[in-house]
Design a protein around this nucleic acid. Structure first.
Length: 547
RNA sequence: GGCCGCGUGCCAGAGUGGUCUAAUGGGGCGGAUUGCAAAUCCGUUUACCGUCGGUUCGAAUCCGACCGCGGCCUCCA
């Protein structure tokens, strides 16, 4: 059965049919970089990464592109042009209708960094001018990319070769201005206000399907709009749901010249521009691009569920109006893909609760990237996954179990990966589950059943698992290197600790003397210090962090 | 109020008309191994699938009602 995925736009499971299966275009709404990303951000980015890996896997059939007959690990069956933006401009602290009020988040971030700097809380070696918004953005972007690569997000790896795949909003402003002008010329946008405080709005009433994506109607939005937007701004709009495309503000922390004065772009226009420039290549002319038949401009558009409204609704509206000969026939993206939010220990994550983790925090607690990735992709993307440390630990054990197959069956170094028929039963079961709206639990279940039936792993087993892991993306991640000392092997990124080593030596002496009471006492002491130990063959002791 | 979804064993979570006397992982229990642990391996335990009714030869799976729970619509992926 070819790949079917739930489309937010139609609220149905649909066969995924890219316009050109040899060149699938995929755009993910990426992070804002005025703070560190948290595990919830990564859950939704990793769901997109999983979909991308599924689409390009030789195991997977599409409606208009069959699976491969034979495949080897590391081979890509379809080319996916996956782009993800980095938003470094345009988000305000309040006002739902497009950044007309409130403080710029980058300014808030600057203040926070300033305080951290004063308190000496910045990581060592970090030199950053908290008054420079671009420096702040660059700082957090680089931290985001490091985590993204650690977790095997292919888009972040691609971007190392091809930076255009992860464009910065601040660098796309000229393109945004051109699209706004185009919308204005065609009568979909209008300017209001005196010079100095001008604003350009999108006219939602000119786009009849406005609301298709989120299920809203203009009537409902009119009812709900009260109280969120300043009366002054609201009164100058033609409709309360009209959203901002450009805001003139000569005093703003980040501003660009424009036909409507110096200012900054609205929230939604950046993705209209970057999704096209990043996936369509250099030859794209934003002034000339016109689609006669309403065909999608990109094959997949993803983002967290909170993006559905207003962000993607507005993006769809302005994109269709800008580029489609008949806007009402357009959908902008063929597949709108929205993973649900992540919970932490059964609780909704939110800034106000302050209950979010960063990847670094999980790593410090002794969890390795492979386990974190598996935990984050392991729940169906349209369920509210719940992240617990127990889950990450379970995932770690699964990863270790799979590694034994991979390691024991690894072909000699330098050997080419062995191609295997994709009709292999476990591969068929694995692919069939994923083809059914990314049924990851079913897919992992199939892998586990197969793994538990393997007696002694062979290179062929490893080759099969390699194909599976091209999709899951956990075994290829870097593992923390064990640090070896004469007595202890420090696992999970731990550095040898003198106090621990002293305890281990003492314990070895006690065991030599058959003083097992003392030996167990020392183990308890180490546990109290936060370390688990395990006796390994050869007299060494493996030391890991107690999670 | 609008849109969407869920209710399966101790827990998480697959299964969407017959092979379900219901995957998989965790937990529990028993055993092997270990000085003891941990890890690993072997075995084993637990579900009439929210309630009621309907369709059907046949339903966890389709339909209806009811009860319960949740998500998004607001900063936030």
């Amino acid at each position: 059965m070819p790949l079917r995925v739930h489309n937010t736009l139609t609220r149905r499971l649909e066969p995924f049919t890219p316009r050109d299966p040899g060149r699938v275009t995929f755009y993910t709404c990426g992070p804002t970089v005025y703070d560190d990303a948290h595990v919830g951000n990564f859950r939704s980015f990793l769901a997109a990464d999983l979909l991308r890996r599924v689409i390009q896997s030789p195991l997977i059939a599409l409606e208009n592109s069959p699976a491969a007959q034979n495949a080897a690990a590391g081979q890509t069956h379809r080319r996916v042009i996956h782009a993800m933006n980095i938003t470094d401009v345009g988000h305000m602290t309040d006002d739902a209708e497009g950044g007309e009020a409130g403080e710029d988040r980058m300014a808030v971030a600057g203040r926070r960094l300033q305080e951290a700097k004063k308190a000496g809380a910045l990581p060592p070696g970090v030199e950053i001018d908290p008054r420079d918004p671009r420096a702040i953005a660059a700082y957090y972007a680089q931290r985001f990319l490091a985590d993204a690569r650690r977790l095997g997000m292919l888009v972040a790896m691609d971007a190392q070769r091809e930076p255009a795949l992860m464009p910065r909003a601040s660098e796309a402003v000229p393109g945004m201005i051109r699209v706004i002008q185009r919308l204005e010329r065609a009568g979909f946008a209008y300017a209001r206000g005196e010079p100095g405080v001008r604003a350009v709005y999108f006219d939602v009433q000119r786009f009849a399907p406005y609301g298709v994506l989120s299920g809203n109607t203009l009537e409902q939005l009119r009812a709900g709009a009260g109280g969120r937007v300043s009366d002054h701004n609201q009164s100058q709009k033609r409709h309360p749901a009209d959203f901002l495309l450009w805001k003139e503000d000569p005093r703003h922390i980040m501003r660009w010249p424009s036909p409507w004065g110096e200012g900054y772009p609205g929230w939604h226009i950046e993705c209209t521009v970057m999704s096209l420039t990043a996936t369509r290549g250099r030859g794209l002319d934003l002034d000339a691009l016109t689609l006669p038949g309403g065909e999608p401009l990109i094959d997949v558009h993803s983002g967290g569920e909170d993006n559905i409204f207003p962000h993607h609704e507005c993006e769809l509206a302005q994109s269709c109006c800008a580029f489609n000969a008949d806007p009402a026939r357009g959908t902008f993206a063929g597949l709108w893909f929205h993973p649900r939010h992540l919970f932490i220990n059964g609780q909704k994550m939110s800034k106000s609760k302050g209950n979010f983790f960063t990847i670094a925090q999980l790593t410090e607690r002794g969890h390795e990237p492979a386990a974190i990735r598996l935990a984050l992709i392991g729940t169906h993307y349209r369920s509210n996954a719940d992240l617990t440390e127990q889950l990450v630990r379970d995932c770690h054990r699964a990863v270790e179990r799979w590694r034994r197959v991979m390691d024991a069956g690894a072909p000699p170094a330098g050997a080419r990966p062995e191609p295997v028929p994709t009709s292999e039963p476990v591969l068929r079961a694995f692919a069939a589950a994923l083809e059914d709206d990314l049924n990851i639990a079913g897919a992992i279940g199939a892998v586990n059943t197969w793994v538990s039936e393997i007696g002694s792993p062979t290179p062929r087993h490893a080759a099969v698992l390699g194909l599976i892991d091209d999709v899951l993306g956990v075994l290829s991640l870097e593992r923390p290197k064990p640090q070896d000392t004469e007595i202890g092997v420090f696992l999970g990124g731990l550095s040898p600790d003198q106090a621990v080593i002293a305890k281990l030596i003492e314990r070895r002496e006690a065991r030599k003397a058959k003083d097992f009471g003392r030996s167990d006492q020392i183990r308890d002491q180490l546990a109290a210090m936060g370390f688990n130990i395990k006796d390994a063959p050869g007299g060494k002791v493996e030391v890991s962090r107690r999670p």
